[in-house]
Design a binder for these strands. Structure first.
Lengths: 356, 356
DNA sequence: GCTTGACTTGAAAAGCGTTTCATATTTTAC
DNA sequence: GTAAAATATGAAACGCTTTTCAAGTCAAGC
C-alpha cells in the first residue's frame, strides 16, 4: 500500500475501485489502481498531449511545465501502460523465436546471439517452444497477425514451405534454420559445404570405413538429406560405411556405438551430428576395448564445450553470429528476400582434453 | 497482396491508406491494413458486442448471426488485435524470466521447465537477459509496472532484496534462485542441505584433503557463502583443503586443476560448482599424470550430460521441476509469500562413461 | 392472458497512449 | 515595425477490444 497526500488522493484515486480510506491515511493498492496519463495531465494542469511530450522527451515543452509534469509523475508514481503504447503505435518491440525445445544445448549459442542483438536494438524476445509439433508451431504464426510481435525467427521446424509463405504475408519472418527455404529470408550455416569438407577430409586421410549419424530421418529433416547427399557425392567408391539416424544425445551415441564396435571390424572414422552423440560413441567404444583417438577418428558438430573437453574436432557453425545476423536482418529496413549463407569453421583440435 | 470482392473493398478498405485499386482488382497490403472488429460488425450487420461474443465464444448469440459473423471474418481475413485485447483486459498472458545470460547450460533445464508449464497454462515467456548487470535487471522491473507482463521470474541475479521488495509492490514475482530471499515467494533447491550432504559424504570416506570451487565470490554470491558455511560446519578439523572461486567453465577448471595438481600433494576429493569445472579439473589432472577415478574423487553440480559422459557423480537440483513449480506458483491464485524448498538428489554414478 | 425467466442484441463507456492539426504566443530577421 | 519563422499547447481523432447495462423478444407456466 502506498500512501498519498490527501490532495492527490482526492483528485485522482477516489474514483477508482481499489481506493480506500482507512481513517487516517488515503491509500491505494498500487497493484491495481495506477494513475494514467489523464490523471497526470489534470494534476499538472496541462493537456494530455503535453504529458505525452514530456514522457517521450519530445521538444516544444516549456521548462516549467516539463518540471511540473515530472514532479506530478513522481508523486503519483506514474508509469506508462505499455499495452496502450503498443496498441497506439502499432509496434511491440518484441520478436518471437520458435525453438523446438530448449533442453538441447545446441540452441544455447543461437539464442544467445539472438538475445544479444535484440537487446542491443531494444527489442524483447518471446521464446516459443514448439516441441516439433506442427499444430503448436502454426499457432505461433498467428502472433504476427495479432500484431503481438514485430517479427518471427524460425529455428529448426516442421512447417511446410507453404505454411511459412502464407505466414510471411502477415509480417516479417527470418529462418535461421539448418537449411535455406526458398524465397524466405534466411540466415543459415552452409551445412552442405561443411559436410562436403568433412567427408573430403576423411576420404583424403585414406579411411575406408566411414560411418555417420543423423537425428530425424531424411524424410523430415533437410539436414539429414544434405548429409546423405554430401556423403554420396564424395565417397563414390564402395566404402563399407554405415548410416545411423535417430541419434540425438549421449544415450543414442552409446546405442549406435554398441553396434559399430560390436564385432572386430571397427570404423576408421565417424562423423556425428552433435557432440553428445560423439561422446556416447566414444564411451561405447571404450567399453568394447577401443579407445579414442588411438583406434578411430571422430568428428562432432556444433562445437560445444563437450568437444573441447573430450578433445575431438567439431564443426563450428558460429551459431552466435547467425543469431545476431538473423535479428539484424529481421529488424533491418532492407528486410527482404535475402539469404545469408554462412561459412562454417572446422578444424582438428590439439589441446589437452579430459581424455588421456 | 490479397484480393477482395468489390463490395468488401468499398465497404471496408477504401478508407485505409494502403488500399489501392490497380484497375482490375481491389487490393490491400495485408500487412498494413487489417480489418478490425468494427469492420466485421458493419459488414455482418451486427454490433461490435455481438462480434466480440462470437470471437470469444460467449453464449447468447443467435445461430444465424454467428454464422454470418464467422463468414465475414473469413472473408475479411480478420484477426483480433492482441494488443487491444491486452489493454482492454488488463492482462497479457505473458511472464518475464530474468536470466543472467543464456550460454550456460545450467539454465537449460530450468528454462525448459518454465516453458513447459507456461505453455500448459497458456502463457508466453519473455526471456530477459541481464548479463549480471544491475542496471539492466532493474530496467526489467518496470515491465511489471508498465503492465507488459503478468509476472516475473527471477533466476540468478544481482538485485538487492530491497530492490526486489520494491518491485514486488507492482506485481507478482517469484525467485527460482540459488537461494531464498526473505519474504519473497521462492522456489529453490535446498543447496545448503546438498552441500552438507556432500561434505559429510566426503568426510565419512575418510578424505583429508577436500578442495572445493565456486563461481562468483562470497561477497556477491549467496550460494558461494552457503558452500563455505557448509564446509566449515562439517569439516571441523584442520583439513588441508583449499577453496577456489571465479570458476565458471572448462577453462577455469583447467586453471585451478593446474594449481591443485602442480605438486605431489594432490587432493583426495574435489567438490566443484558445475560439471564443466569438474571436467576441466579432470583434464588438467591428466596432463599432470593423475587420472580420475583412480587418483581422486570429484563431484560436480547440476547433473548435466557432462557428468554422465565423464562418469562422475553430480548433485542434481531438479531444475526442470523447479521451473515448473515456479511458474505454477507465480500464476496460482494462492500466490503469496510462499517458499518452496526443494530436496536435492545426489548419488554416485556407476555407469559406463567416456573415460576409461 | 399475463407473469416470469431466458435469451438476444446494441449503445456506450472504459482501458490508455500517440499523433495530427489548429491556434496562440514568442522570437528572429530585415 | 512587421512579416516570417519558431515554439508552445490543447482538443480531438485514432488504435481496437471488452464489458456493462438497458432494452427488446420469445416461450413456458399458471
Amino acid at each position: 500500500m502506498k500512501r498519498f497526500s490527501s490532495q492527490a488522493f482526492k483528485t485522482i484515486f477516489l474514483k477508482k475501485k481499489s481506493a480506500c480510506y482507512n481513517g487516517s491515511d488515503y491509500a491505494v493498492k498500487k497493484w491495481e489502481a495506477m494513475a494514467n496519463i489523464k490523471d497526470v495531465a489534470r494534476m499538472a494542469g496541462v493537456s494530455i498531449a503535453t504529458v505525452s511530450r514530456v514522457l517521450n522527451e519530445y521538444p516544444h515543452v516549456a521548462k516549467d511545465k516539463q518540471e511540473k509534469v515530472l514532479a506530478v509523475m513522481k508523486e503519483l508514481n506514474y508509469s506508462v501502460n505499455g499495452n496502450a503504447v503498443k496498441l497506439s503505435k502499432g509496434k511491440t518491440n518484441t520478436i518471437g523465436v520458435i525453438v523446438p525445445y530448449n533442453n538441447n544445448s545446441c540452441y544455447d549459442e543461437l539464442i544467445n546471439g539472438i538475445l544479444k542483438k535484440a537487446h542491443e536494438l531494444h527489442y524483447q524476445v518471446l521464446l516459443l517452444p514448439s516441441y516439433y509439433e506442427n499444430v503448436i508451431e502454426s499457432s505461433y504464426l498467428t502472433l504476427l497477425k495479432k500484431k503481438m510481435i514485430d517479427g518471427l525467427l524460425l529455428t529448426s521446424h516442421t512447417l511446410h514451405p507453404e505454411q511459412i509463405k502464407a505466414l510471411a504475408e502477415w509480417g516479417k519472418i527470418v529462418c535461421c534454420d539448418a537449411c535455406p527455404i526458398e524465397l524466405v529470408p534466411s540466415v543459415f550455416p552452409d551445412r552442405f559445404a561443411a559436410y562436403i569438407e568433412v567427408f573430403t577430409y576423411l576420404k583424403n586421410k585414406g579411411y575406408k570405413r566411414i560411418h555417420f549419424t543423423s537425428g530425424r530421418d531424411s524424410q523430415s529433416s533437410p539436414s539429414t538429406r544434405l548429409r546423405i547427399q554430401a556423403y554420396q557425392e564424395i565417397i563414390t567408391e564402395a566404402y563399407e560405411s554405415q548410416f545411423f539416424d535417430q541419434c540425438f544425445d549421449f544415450q543414442d551415441g552409446k546405442r549406435v556405438g554398441g553396434i559399430m564396435f560390436r564385432n572386430s571390424i571397427v570404423p576408421d572414422a565417424i562423423f556425428t551430428n552433435g557432440d553428445e552423440v560423439a561422446a556416447g560413441i566414444i564411451a561405447s567404444a571404450q567399453t568394447h576395448g577401443y579407445s579414442y583417438p588411438q583406434d578411430f577418428e571422430i568428428i562432432g558438430e556444433e562445437n560445444t564445450p563437450l568437444s573441447e573437453i573430450l578433445g575431438f574436432p567439431s564443426v563450428d557453425y558460429h551459431q552466435t553470429a547467425i543469431g545476431e545476423q538473423a535479428v539484424s536482418l529481421l529488424l533491418s529496413d532492407e528486410y527482404a528476400r535475402i539469404q545469408i549463407r554462412h561459412q562454417l569453421n572446422f578444424r582438428a583440435r590439439t589441446e589437452a582434453s579430459a581424455l588421456s
